[in-house]
Nucleic acid binder design. Structure first.
Length: 597
RNA sequence: GCUCCCAUAGUUCAAUGGAUAGAACAACUCUCUCCUAAAGAGUAGAUCCGGGUUCGAUUCCCGGUGGGAGUACCA
């Protein structure tokens, strides 16, 4: 139990005894004491005035006296206006550190058989082009959210819905047939997803030429876009695909295989994985069935042109198309089908979709539709909506060639980490493999931390130069502190000091050390709140704050040269636990910690 | 047009309705005989505008202004 919750409980009791009133624990506001005042934790008395019928200062005095006399937690207090500053007793700090020290998983909760099952969908790529920076944010957020959910005692199923069918795939296929000369990943030396992406771009280039030519002949832009021979051919190919044409299907399968091999490499580099992958080619028919079912039940209606719609004007939204007049399915139909299959496969309690905020409306509608169709978790589905990643010179636009490719980015980050390491020259005794592995951990740590420290909901700016900065609020700064602590602990072990043996029972601790323990203990609460809000950025900023605080502390003295044996052991234990907590926290974000760097 | 989101130092980001709005980067000063200086200490610098709600507002509500997204028989 954290200090805050213990204090809250005691304060509830105090109010009952002093004022004979019942208050909720949530009504007891505890916060960290501002540095300019004496104390560790501060109780805000304003919310209690209704119960005490006294002025804020008097209420603070009453509460402070009660807490000091009746609990072992508080050793002193002072009142400033409506704020009751509490000094926590040294023994309480030692007890807390003991608690943290005893549990390497401190703050993390494991799932049991009865835990809620949370399914998290993320990544969800199209198979016609390689992953870019926007996907990277999605993948890293998805992974972090799933880790945090698991650390909050949920059973987690990570899932991916691959958009492997549709007109966009046909465009790549057509371009490859026409201009590819049988090129393969092996023959070209390109990653499969990049190869297919190149043909997608090639299609677009020729298609636009055709459109321009037609417009020169007097057609309007819309007409030209529809009448261009290439797009007509792509549509024909899509129809053949739907009919199961063997030639088209086998080409489609071949090219998808290339793309998946490419994606797997990227996923591996990003350190993400999935428990269950769904493919739209397998779910879109299910969606049609479900829509027909809804039609029979009268939830949806058919228009004279044969298209099927849902009327959501009662919910304050528009009418939404579910099946085209030719009977083919749209995006929404597929998501309904995927939901159906997932529900068959897993006893889902909660569904989380990690998808960009440009689809807020889509998920608002999906939630209502799933609910109408009888999915229990439909109403409560969570759209974990994240903002776009912008570049200093504007948005990423594939047509303008301003897309940041995921693989290029990963390679650049690792190369840069390696260059920085080599320049620092502290790794001269490492083998080449060790150097490369450390560079990978640090480079990826920089990238992941940069993307995860920002509130997911907000659009963010990705400045390539700043992202590879290793100073300040960055992943490598945190990793560096970790590596330094590990170094100290190694040296301590060489001197025969056993840090694993419990804490010294009796040692004088400084104010800074108390604050550090307080900060560490907060980790449990941070993980809990981050889990409720699905918020990786909260974890990231916590790790940074803790490490920054430790660094200030660390420079005040030399641990291994400390004369007092008990103090030395205490400080080693403190350091060890800071490292452990930071490692756990960063682990939730998918960021590894190097033993050396 | 309609709907939704965002607005904080020069820049990138923080702040369950709480005390004097925190960091980092960039700028300017200092600190390596020292467990890893990829560090630490210091100086300067901000809540878009106007109302409201209350003990108290960056936070909640209303109205502006400025940015972004959605509004397709695309996915």
């Amino acid at each position: 139990m954290t200090l805050e919750t213990q204090l809250q409980a005691a304060a509830v009791q105090a109010v009952a005894v002093l004022y004979g009133a019942q208050v909720d624990a949530a009504q007891i506001q505890i916060q960290k004491t501002r540095p300019e005042f004496e104390g560790h934790l501060t109780l805000v008395t304003f919310p209690l005035l209704r119960q005490s019928h006294k002025r804020p200062e008097e209420t603070g005095e009453d509460m402070g006296r009660y807490l000091k006399e009746n609990t072992a937690l508080v050793s002193a207090y002072n009142v400033v206006k409506g704020f009751l500053n509490l000094v926590i007793a040294p023994q309480a700090w030692l007890g807390l550190l003991d608690e943290i020290n005893a549990d390497p998983q401190y703050g993390l909760v494991s799932a049991t058989e009865e835990s809620p099952l949370v399914m998290i969908e993320y990544s969800s790529p199209n198979t016609n082009k390689p992953l870019h920076l926007g996907h990277v944010r999605n993948n890293l957020l998805g992974w972090a959210v799933s880790q945090i959910a698991a650390a909050n005692g949920n059973r987690v199923v990570r899932t991916n819905i691959v958009n492997d069918r549709g007109i966009h795939i046909c465009k790549s296929m057509l371009a490859w047939l026409r201009w590819g000369n049988g090129e393969t990943p092996e023959s070209s030396g390109k990653k499969g997803d990049h190869l297919i992406g190149d043909y997608y771009v090639l299609f677009d280039k020729h298609y636009r030429e055709e459109v321009h030519a037609l417009m020169a002949q007097g057609l309007s832009e819309d007409e030209a876009k529809q009448e261009a021979p290439l797009i007509k051919e792509a549509h024909e190919m899509l129809v053949k695909w739907e009919q199961g044409d063997t030639e088209v299907r086998s080409l489609w399968e071949k090219m998808n295989t290339w793309v998946y091999a490419g994606f797997d490499e990227t996923y591996k580099a990003l350190g993400v994985s999935f428990d269950k992958i769904y493919y739209e080619s397998q779910t879109y028919l299910e969606g049609k069935e479900k829509v027909e079912e809804g039609l029979k039940k009268g939830i949806f209606y058919r228009r004279p042109d044969n298209s099927v719609w849902a009327d959501l004007t009662g919910e304050g939204l528009d009418e939404k198309l579910l099946l085209r007049s030719d009977g083919t399915s749209v995006y929404m139909t597929q998501d309904i089908g995927t939901a159906k299959l997932r529900f068959q496969d897993f006893p889902i309690d909660k569904m989380v979709y990690v998808v960009g905020n440009e689809q807020n409306y889509h998920f608002q509608v999906l939630s209502i539709l799933l609910d109408k169709l009888g999915f229990e978790w439909g109403k409560g589905l969570v759209h974990f909506s994240y903002g776009m990643v912008e570049l200093p010179n504007g948005k990423m636009k594939s047509r303008e060639g301003t897309v940041v490719d995921a693989d290029d980015l990963v390679a650049a980050m690792i190369a840069d980490a390696r260059a920085t390491m080599d320049a620092a020259g502290k790794n001269d005794d490492m083998t080449e493999e060790e150097k490369q592995e450390t560079a990978r951990i640090v480079g990826m740590g920089a990238l992941k931390y940069f993307l995860l420290k920002v509130d997911a909901r907000k659009n963010m700016l990705f400045n390539p130069e700043e992202s590879i900065d290793f100073n300040g609020n960055t992943g490598p700064f945190i990793q560096y502190t970790y590596a330094r602590i590990r170094s100290v602990l190694r040296k301590a072990a060489e001197q025969g000091l056993n840090v694993e043996a419990g804490l010294p029972a009796d040692v004088a601790i400084s104010t800074k050390e108390e604050e550090l323990i307080q900060h560490m203990a907060q980790f449990a609460e941070v993980v809990r709140t981050a889990g409720q809000d699905c918020s990786p950025s909260v974890i990231a900023n916590y790790c940074y704050d803790l490490v920054k605080e430790y660094n200030q502390f660390y420079h005040d003295f030399s641990i291994l040269k400390e004369e007092d044996e008990a103090k030395k052991m205490f400080r080693l234990a403190l350091s060890k636990n800071v490292a452990q907590i930071v490692k756990n926290g960063m682990g939730l974000l998918g960021i590894e910690m190097p033993e050396r760097m």
